[in-house]
Nucleic acid binder design. Structure first.
Lengths: 220, 220
DNA sequence: TCGGAAGCCGAGGACCCCCTCCGGTGCCCG
DNA sequence: CGGGCACCGGAGGGGGTCCTCGGCTTCCGA
């Protein structure tokens, strides 16, 4: 996090300001969780019972507020990741990692959107994404070396699965909130080394993957 | 199609009106294809060089215009479906059906959105969706009876795959336009009977599935 | 206690979208 | 060729969103 970003989102000195900042974060968590990253800032201010100008005073950009709101989710996710990465069995670690990731993703539409996109302007979010990619690469490679996961799978394929899962969640969150698990376990059967059949399409390159993630945050 | 719907979207008598109607459909095809079913109607009118009031005169509801615009896509899809359904080999028919579906889906964001959603108000769209579900059920059951596709797969799982694929396409259409094929062939390995491992989550019920599709068209 | 600075409010400009309504236009048929 | 009616245009009302800015309030430290 750069100095200017720390400056932008620091906790203010005055009591009343701290209180309002807190109310904003709580409202933002609710709204982002329910409506995704593109939730209305004016609505969040209204929900927090705070004027729109005050929201902008505390969080000059949408990303500032989003990061403050998602912080607990990110921590929850990273905690679960760490546990998964410590599992000895490579296949178990792989499964556990994805299950944790998707569980957190399913609980918060904002986090869901956040996972699928890249925000090239922000060091902070790039850092989180890079860390996640590193972890996936880790757990995936280990499972492949152990012969548990087929060799022709790439980081990009896992990100594709994250996108897919995100869409599943959007569709089913209110009607069948656990449906994503079925889709995940189905896909796991495709990842098993013994299931492998040749795929008539090469994996996405890193650049293609990155551009696609940026695309999701700029389209429309 | 009910009488009132035929009435609403019939081709007008006057030359100039026919001409404008045609321009509207062409612009709508471009816009829906590029921006999905929520494309701006005012923008479509602008692109067609027609006043907004005229658009509403020809197409009283968004769905009227959407159906007129998607008509070629729907036909393209149904033609391909028919060919796939006639393939003797049950697994081949199954693969071919999905490949055709996804190919058309990938070429048009409006059709992509349309496939994932249900519009309970419209007989016409319900008819198309019902027909598609019937076909999927057909090709799926046949492949299962032949022992090619695992028995624990449901229509709902295929619809889940359609959602997933839709998201893939949204993400990759500009950067890796064929990436969806990779994801499809990966998933096919999960569908193979010999790949089956127990799934710790039951399939969605028909009602859950229907509600989820409606949810996608009403959310936000 | 009290004044200055930190902080708050919300009107308002700039966009965007949906949809209606009705005065005016121009096609086509008799 | 002329009148009637199908048709067209586009202003305008009603909503929303983002974000700014300057007058007003409130806290808190000296």
């Amino acid at each position: 996090m750069s100095a200017s970003e720390i400056e932008r989102t620091r906790v203010p000195r005055r009591r009343d300001a701290q209180e309002r900042r807190h109310r904003l974060i709580v409202a933002a968590q609710r709204e982002f969780a329910a409506r995704g990253v593109d939730a209305s800032l004016e609505r969040i201010a209204r929900e927090a019972d705070v004027a729109i100008g005050t929201l902008y005073r505390h969080f000059p950009t949408r990303l500032d507020l989003l990061l403050a709101a998602l912080e607990p989710r990110v921590r929850e996710f990273l905690d679960g990741s760490e546990k998964a990465l410590q599992i000895d069995d490579p296949w178990g670690a792989f499964v556990s990692y994805l299950e944790n990731l998707f569980r957190v993703q399913a609980g918060d539409r904002g986090f869901n959107d956040f996972l699928s996109r890249r925000f090239p302007g922000s060091e902070e979010t790039e850092r989180i994404h890079d860390e996640m990619c590193r972890q996936i690469d880790d757990v995936l490679t280990r499972a492949q070396k152990a012969g548990a996961v087929r060799a022709d799978i790439t980081l990009a394929d896992i990100v594709n699965l994250i996108w897919s899962n995100g869409r599943m969640i959007d569709a089913t969150s209110t009607t069948a909130p656990n449906a994503w698990r079925r889709q995940l376990f189905l896909m796991l059967d495709a990842y098993r080394a013994e299931a492998a059949h040749a795929i008539p399409e090469p994996p996405m390159s890193e650049k293609q993957l990155y551009d696609a993630m940026v695309h999701l945050s700029t389209a429309d």
